[in-house]
Design a binder for these strands. Structure first.
Length: 203
DNA sequence: GTATGGATGTTCT
DNA sequence: GAACATCCATACT
């Protein structure tokens, strides 16, 4: 527990974090496990949260993963034990949020791609110019914008337990990559309007 | 609904 | 200079 945790405790009724011991170590297992659980962000304006409905695994020896070519200053948090954030800027416009996986020293992680908004929708709307509510956090860049994961704002970020059974989980190839495109390492909630990607991948 | 192209900044060759 | 785990606006079926 670091000093910052003691200085500003979370709101008393905020969802409790998952214990690290319950996170699967294996990357694909973690990606599947996270579906149905909750991502919580505490901002000065209040709590913003959403149910995780879409993830992608970027595991050991995966040529599409950022850790594939070894440890660099950018990707070093992927080499931490499971449950740490790895955030980077893609295409100069969108931040991507990942959860580190595997054991310390092994570079791997899970990309969180979409949320079903739960709490603090008004807070998330402040950062998203949208017409349809379903687009609030539908896609990894939109998700990071909605939760204002922009690396220049104060506020904790954690994973919490989902309230109920997530529903049927589908599996497909991953989106937006050019290597290892055949692997079916994308996990999503079936029949969920908040999932990104073309209909052909979401059957 | 799907397809296409431009904007954008960091990392690595 | 190229690649890139994207988004948005626009055009079209």
């Amino acid at each position: 527990m670091g000093r910052a945790d003691k200085l500003k405790p979370a709101r008393h009724d905020a969802p409790l974090p998952l214990d690290r011991s319950e996170l699967p170590i294996d990357t694909a297992s973690l990606a599947r496990y996270l579906i149905g659980n909750v991502l919580v962000r505490e901002l000065p304006e209040g709590i913003a949260s959403g149910r995780i409905v879409e993830t992608e695994a970027y595991g050991v020896g995966d040529a599409a993963g950022h850790a594939y070519r070894g440890l660099t200053p950018r990707n070093r948090s992927l080499f931490l034990e499971r449950g740490y954030a790895y955030v980077y800027l893609a295409y100069g416009t969108s931040y991507m949020l990942n959860v580190s996986s595997e054991t310390p020293g092994i570079g791997a992680g899970v990309l969180i791609r979409a949320l079903e908004p739960l709490e603090g929708i008004a807070i998330m709307l402040l950062a998203r110019r949208i017409e349809r509510m379903r687009d609030l956090a539908r896609g990894p860049g939109r998700l990071a914008a909605a939760l204002r994961i922009d690396l220049c704002r104060q506020g904790p970020l954690w994973l919490a337990r989902g309230d109920d059974e997530p529903g049927e989980i589908g599996q497909s190839t991953r989106i937006g990559i050019s290597r290892d495109t055949h692997r079916r390492l994308r996990f999503y909630l079936r029949n969920c309007p908040f999932v990104s990607g073309p209909r052909s991948l979401n059957g």
